[in-house]
């Protein structure tokens, strides 16, 4: 079983990459290949040109800037997971990455690849949406930033243009000591989740919630923020949260159905998992004294 024939290109610089994308038709970018290669081996897709970006060093790496933490699109999942910056400033991302594939796939797979492929059950796009991350994109018209709210266009469909490539993701960390929670259900550790939930919380010194992000993933075709439920948490005390409306919000989503899982079961899981994520976020929220 192998991919259909294609022309292989290996640019060494971003300029070469940009030129190739402008010139070539039916081209695909090969990052870590952990989703693209199976699709090519199974001949779900057959690009005429494969542009391998593994040898462009500027596309990988994690740096803190005034605008936030920028993670290069080609940064391998294993490097994001072991990054001290990520573990201390974006603990939710590290927590989620433990559920992304296995050591063999994290050694190759990249955060940018996952966020361009956009499997509805993928953890990294879900975390990006919870953080309102910014997607830094380059193309024929230069560089521009796409907010997470505009990045997800649908099932496996991002806002990236055909001649564009994702350069990096930018995360704005939440306050030190913020609460974070992550829960998913998968049939085998590391498999794509059937469904999952994410919660981020900030509180004041009395323990009242001042900021919240709640998200369900693997339920609809894209990760879904539960904005109304987020608003309802504000002002509540962390020790006495009314979790039921949050669970109900996740349970009311339009869930997908497939050969393995009914929509009803997915909705049930969405409720259970957002509840667990929120409880974990309450437990990890540090009290400021």
């Amino acid at each position: 079983m192998k991919a259909s024939p294609f022309q292989y290109h290996r640019p060494q610089t971003r300029e070469e990459l940009g030129a190739l994308l402008t010139r070539l038709d039916n081209a695909k970018i090969l990052a870590g290949g952990q989703s693209l290669m199976p699709m090519m081996n199974l001949r779900v897709i057959a690009p005429d040109h494969l542009i391998d970006i593994n040898r462009i060093p500027e596309l990988a790496g994690i740096r803190e800037t005034a605008a936030g933490i920028e993670i290069g699109a080609m940064t391998r999942q294993t490097d994001v997971l072991s990054s001290e910056t990520v573990r201390s400033r974006l603990p939710l991302l590290a927590r989620a990455l433990e559920h992304v594939g296995h050591i063999q796939t994290r050694a190759r797979g990249t955060i940018g690849g996952s966020c361009c492929h956009l499997d509805p059950s993928a953890e990294q796009p879900a975390v990006s949406a919870a953080f309102d991350a910014e997607f830094i994109v380059s193309g024929p018209n230069g560089r521009h930033v796409i907010p997470a709210s505009a990045w997800f266009e649908g099932l496996l469909q991002s806002a990236l243009g055909e001649q564009e490539y994702l350069e990096a993701l930018r995360f704005k960390p939440w306050a030190n000591g913020h609460g974070y929670g992550f829960a998913e259900y998968a049939r085998r550790h590391g498999d794509f989740a059937v469904a999952g939930g994410i919660a981020l919380l900030e509180g004041d010194r009395d323990g009242r919630i001042t900021r919240a992000a709640l998200l369900s993933f693997g339920v609809e075709s894209s990760p879904r923020r539960l904005t109304e439920a987020e608003g309802a948490l504000l002002g509540q005390h962390v020790d006495n949260l009314d979790i039921e409306p949050v669970i109900e919000a996740a349970r009311s989503l339009e869930a997908m159905e497939d050969a393995h899982v009914t929509a009803g079961y997915r909705r049930h899981l969405a409720g259970v998992l957002i509840g667990r994520a929120l409880k974990e976020a309450c437990a990890t929220l540090e009290r400021q004294s």
């Binding site: 079983m1 290949g33 290669m37 199976p38 081996n41 391998d52 050591i103 063999q104 050694a107 190759r108």
Partner: peptide, 23 residues
Amino acid sequence: EHGVCGACTVIVDGAPVRSCLML
């Protein structure tokens, strides 16, 4: 040959990788 079973794992530059998902 689509990255699920792990039988084809080899070590490339110190990291275990699925050899069916690398060219």
